[in-house]
Simulated assay, not measured.
Amino acid sequence: MAFDGSVWRVRSGGEAVGEILIDDMDFPWLSGRFTPGPAFGSVRELFARELALADRDDDWELWEEAYEEIRRRVSLSSPDGPVPEFLLHIEGDRAWFRWSDEPFDED
């Protein structure tokens, strides 16, 4: 799959959270311009909180709880369809993420 110029979609239930137009790759991360959709307002604060906690570097348990809420609320789809696992950050008009075709091991 060619990534540059591809559009990835973020959804919450059946609603569009936004689209990410990929314009940069730094394996394993992809990043791009984020265009919010109608449902972004319902998850905006979750992404802001997750990034604030990640910047603190002092309580990863709180960060994990915040990110788990994001994972419960949103899904990520590549141009080929949904991806089972991802780590997604959104700030302003930028989004960056890594993903996997296979579920992560919980062990």
Rank of each mutant, 00 (worst) to 15 (best):
M1E: 12
M1K: 12
M1F: 12
V7S: 00
W8H: 01
W8I: 00
R9E: 10
R11D: 07
R11T: 09
G13K: 00
E15A: 11
E15D: 14
E15K: 10
G18P: 06
E19K: 04
I20A: 04
D24G: 11
M25K: 13
D26R: 05
F27C: 09
P28R: 03
P28D: 05
W29M: 07
S31E: 10
R33Q: 13
R33G: 09
F34R: 02
P36L: 06
G37M: 02
P38T: 12
F40P: 07
G41W: 07
S42W: 11
S42M: 11
R44Q: 15
L46I: 10
F47Q: 09
R49S: 02
L51W: 04
L51V: 01
L51P: 01
A52T: 12
D55N: 13
R56C: 13
R56P: 07
R56L: 14
D57Y: 12
D59R: 15
W60K: 09
E61H: 15
W63L: 11
E64P: 01
E65C: 14
A66Q: 09
Y67Q: 00
E68H: 11
E69F: 07
E69K: 12
R71Q: 15
R71I: 15
R72E: 15
R72Y: 12
R73L: 07
R73S: 09
V74Q: 05
S75A: 10
L76C: 06
S77Y: 01
P79I: 15
D80H: 14
D80I: 11
G81N: 05
V83L: 08
V83R: 03
L87Q: 02
L87E: 01
L88I: 02
I90T: 05
I90G: 05
G92Y: 15
D93I: 12
R94N: 06
R94G: 06
W96H: 03
R98N: 00
R98I: 00
W99F: 09
W99E: 00
D101T: 10
D101W: 09
E102A: 10
D107Y: 03
